[in-house]
């Protein structure tokens, strides 16, 4: 590896970063006002984009910063969805309370699954998370009260409790999605700026080195695993609130909730906050163009993921950042020179 020195004058880099930051701010404002300007179809698309942004931020936190490559995040999307349905339908919990509660319970379930999965290292950890997701999927199909293999729908009157008119419901749901997208970015950003950030960047850059200077890498990774499981479960709850129907196949789909998410993170730039944002834009742009190509669309995605790994595994933003030293959401430290610290 060669150390890449910024090839642009610092002043220009700063100006571009400022412009990008401004753009990001404008986009955020535009998104906040989307119900005003966007049609119903656009609003639905944006909800999906924002959900995927949140899932991607979580996978990036897990894989990009903590080095935990999971291909079983669908376990938590599905679990969040099912828990949300169960809380709302059988425990009578109001919808808006059921979402965070489902997230909390998902995080709790992640404690034992993490305890098991952490017995495996590296690529075997990845497959282990997948097995756990399969256990969830097969179990969900066995639970008669939740509709078994054919799934279950959220009763219309429950959905109505969100808002009486369909239009108003969609606005409420849109703001949930907006909050999920925004909070996921801010959560990762703040985490990286906190004392945890030092530990995480140390782990990302070199795990043995992080350990050598006293970062309790295992503990940090475990907590990140549980945290991302909770947020992923929250997003899962929301996704199925929006769909109003949940089945084991849809809830625990590895393609939808993990493969696409990995694609987003990898193409955008793993191990950066900006990467998932860029990745999600690329992913949905690609989908708008190529979704009709059916299998060829998926083959193309697989090929792009491989190509990124072979050409520059840092992805789009990673390459830009290394080349120009740009950062839209600075985490407030020079990464390579940072002395890693031990979180309490």
């Amino acid at each position: 590896m060669t150390v890449t020195t910024p090839t642009m004058p610092a002043q220009r880099t700063n100006r571009i970063a400022l412009a990008l930051r401004l753009l990001l701010g404008l986009v955020t404002v535009a998104l906040a006002l989307a119900p005003v300007w966007a049609g119903r179809a656009d609003l639905r698309l944006l909800m999906e984009v924002l959900s995927f942004l949140a899932l991607a931020q979580m996978w990036n936190l897990l894989a990009g910063y903590s080095g935990l490559i999971s291909i079983g995040q669908q376990a938590f999307v599905g679990l969040g969805g099912y828990l949300f349905f169960a809380l709302a339908m059988f425990a009578g919990v109001p919808l808006l309370a059921a979402l965070p509660l489902a997230a909390l319970l998902t995080a709790l379930v992640a404690l034992p699954t993490g305890w098991i999965a952490f017995r495996l290292q590296g690529a075997y950890f990845a497959i282990g998370t997948w097995v756990i997701a399969e256990v969830f999927r097969l179990s969900a199909a066995q639970i008669g009260a939740l509709g078994g293999g054919s799934g279950i729908s959220l009763p219309v009157d429950l959905a109505r409790s969100l808002a009486e008119s369909r239009g108003a419901r969609e606005v409420v749901m849109y703001y949930i999605a907006f909050a999920l997208g925004l909070v996921s970015v801010l959560l990762v950003w703040m985490l990286l700026r906190s004392r945890w950030g030092l530990a995480l960047t140390a782990i990302r850059d070199s795990e043995p080195a992080a350990e050598a200077v006293g970062v309790a890498t295992r503990k940090v990774k475990f907590l990140i695993y549980v945290l991302t499981a909770g947020v992923t479960g929250l997003v899962g709850g929301f996704i199925f609130l929006q769909k109003l129907r949940i089945t084991p196949e849809a809830a625990f789909s590895i393609n939808d909730w993990t493969a696409f998410v990995i694609f987003i993170v990898v193409i955008g730039g793993i191990g950066t906050i900006e990467g998932p944002i860029i990745g999600v834009i690329v992913f949905f742009a690609l989908r708008e163009v190529a979704a009709d190509w059916g299998t060829w669309y998926l083959i193309g995605m697989g090929a792009i993921a491989i190509a990124v790994m072979l050409i520059d595994k840092r992805g789009i933003w990673g390459a830009v950042k290394a080349r120009y030293g740009l950062s839209i959401l600075p985490v407030g430290r020079v990464l390579d020179a940072a002395p890693p610290a031990k979180p309490d």
Binding site: G67, I262, I299, A305, V308, M309
Partner: peptide, 23 residues
């Protein structure tokens, strides 16, 4: 030493093969 590239490349291969077989 970096785990990500082999995992992603073979995961990508998996998706390619499944869809090619489907085709």
């Amino acid at each position: 030493a970096d785990l990500l590239p082999p995992v992603l490349v073979t995961f990508g291969l998996s998706i390619i093969i499944q869809n090619a077989l489907l085709e």
